[in-house]
Design a protein around this nucleic acid. Structure first.
Lengths: 340, 340
DNA sequence: CTGAAAGCGCTTACAG
DNA sequence: CTGAAAGCGCTTACAG
């Protein structure tokens, strides 16, 4: 009951192996009778071309690689979206997805993905400001697209969310409402330390905007979970009444933020304003609905995948990039600064 | 600057290709000088064996497949754990992970994974009570382990969480506290309709336990998100004071559950008792900490992976299974039924 | 301890 | 429209 190979099909159909191959690929005209006979046999015997043999002969694997961050940084919702959406997209064009965990430290899995001809292209997520994996990708010659971008993205292919610009816009919004002391509820200290782009750019943007609007900036890191959010928000609320508003980019902490506000009996937006750069579901789940720049990781990965396909098709293509920068949707969490 | 192949290494080292191969695999003794020379060249030129060629020659791919549910059912936290943990585990033993989305309806990606020799083993998640993908797996001859189990799991290799037993235990706990009308806040109606194991077994167990304890069962489906949880819980609370307690297996709905309780000014556990079958982080994030059977998807996937490796190594191995059934940890969400 | 060669199962010029 | 054959880059008996 072993799986038949192409030779078995050819034998039974009374044709050569090349005829079977061409009948299946459609790369050359085959007489209708032979074609039908072959296709019937393929169906009946459940023949599928061996992927390795095909990859070896064709020189491509019909597989794209996705490099995911290791478990140690708790994976957040947006990352799940990357995996799930990419898998669906790839499957819709008959590509497979190969996963590799990697920080970039050493990582055999990552090198294997690059050098063994396992994949035709790579999507690298969680890019850091200074990310040595980019050099490895570059050297490997495998087409790739970054989700996120390093400090200097010149000449690279990437998609990203404009955390810098969005945080600035959030601060601007708060400044317009009269807030003079604004906190940033950032991602975790570990991510900041690791040079994680969004976290770093959020801080930089906060400070730049604060300088421009002549207000005080208070960046706070917090773990990507409820406990982290509660602790971070509590810390901020202790600085009331000086601090009257916060910007957050930490979706996963929001439930804790909410709880801290409740516990401190601080009412939003009367006593305190909150504006976020978060996914739709997070903005919506907040109560009241959060004033936020609503980002879409799914959309981002869609762009990245499209770019990757282009690049695979035309390896010499000019570097392109997509910077997602949605405008702020007003919700019920921001209002005029309370009177000092 | 093209990647060197094994022949290039052999030429430069002045040995045959087989010697290079054996030096790398260690499957046959090589004289130290040649070995060193070869390894140095491999290092210097960055040689990695071509994965397809190796897979073709060896007859195995050093890759395991993970079949994930399609996006349409929103992926929940536990599913992310499966992906992330499996990827790390696999990478720790130099295996790659190939992803495939599938419900089992038609799905080329799934069939491709099975029949193209792409993977040495498969982990299938989100198994339904009556899941035709199992027959496809069986027929393919590829070793596999199910995460979840069908109605009749006899002779199969699987790991699962004992939702049935756990829900029964939860009902028992509530019965002991004097509750006579108990609701079940289940997963979504779609999942129930699709025959999703945990959702189906939860209902069956609820009803069985209700019969045994002579109490009334009220199963309610709710979407796997905050809005769903809020709606579901609201529906249940409207049946107060008759219904005094609920069991939930829907982690993703908990934030909404919490909100519905707050809005209705129902105090837990004084006015209403809640007990869950949920992951640690969900039990912990609830306020007060939830009385719950705390399940661990990460642990489950660890068992599944270990079983898969065993099965790959010994395809004729006896069917094994693991049924996770943690005891209930008391939290602050269950108490005596309020006086009717 | 080592090498020449077959073979894994495809695809695709080459020749007709 | 079709077939015989080379070749993709490995691994592993086979022979020494």
């Amino acid at each position: 009951m072993k799986r038949p190979d192409i030779g078995e099909i050819a034998r039974r159909a009374g044709v050569s192996r090349s005829t079977v191959s061409y009948a299946l690929s459609g790369k050359r005209p085959i007489s209708p009778e032979k074609r039908d006979k072959i296709l019937r046999l393929v169906e009946k015997l459940g023949y599928r071309p061996n992927a390795s043999a095909r990859a070896l002969a064709e020189g491509r694997s019909r597989t794209v690689g996705l490099v995911i961050p290791p478990l140690s940084h708790r994976l957040v919702d947006a990352q799940l979206a990357f995996v799930a959406v990419l898998t669906e997209l790839a499957s819709s064009v008959d590509l497979d997805v190969l996963l590799s965990p990697s920080t970039g430290d050493d990582d055999r899995s990552f090198r294997r993905m690059l050098n063994g001809g396992r994949v035709d292209g790579v999507l690298l997520m969680e890019v850091r400001m200074n990310d040595e994996r980019i050099a490895a990708l570059e050297e490997s010659g495998v087409p790739y697209v970054l989700i996120g971008r390093p400090a200097d993205p010149t000449g690279l292919h990437w998609v990203d969310i404009d955390y810098g610009g969005l945080v600035e816009r959030c601060v601007q919004h708060l400044a317009d409402l009269g807030h003079r002391n604004v906190a940033l509820l950032n991602r975790s200290a570990e991510l900041v330390a690791a040079g994680y782009g969004p976290a770093r750019r959020a801080v930089a943007a906060l400070e730049a905007a604060a300088a421009r609007h002549r207000l005080r900036a208070h960046p706070i890191c917090c773990a990507d979970d409820t406990a982290g959010g509660e602790a971070g928000m509590k810390q901020i609320l202790e600085m009331r009444p000086r601090i009257t508003a916060a910007v957050t980019i930490n979706e996963s902490a929001l439930q804790g933020v909410s709880r801290a506000l409740d516990r401190s009996r601080v009412r939003v937006p009367r006593d305190f304003s909150l504006v976020g750069v978060v996914g739709e579901r997070w903005a919506e789940d907040f109560h009241p609905r959060m004033t936020a720049a609503v980002v879409s990781p799914a959309e981002l990965v869609r762009s990245a995948f499209a770019m990757l396909l282009e690049r695979i098709a035309d390896p010499g293509a000019e570097p392109r990039h997509v910077l997602q920068s949605p405008s702020i949707t007003l919700g019920g969490t921001t209002g005029r600064a309370p009177r000092g």
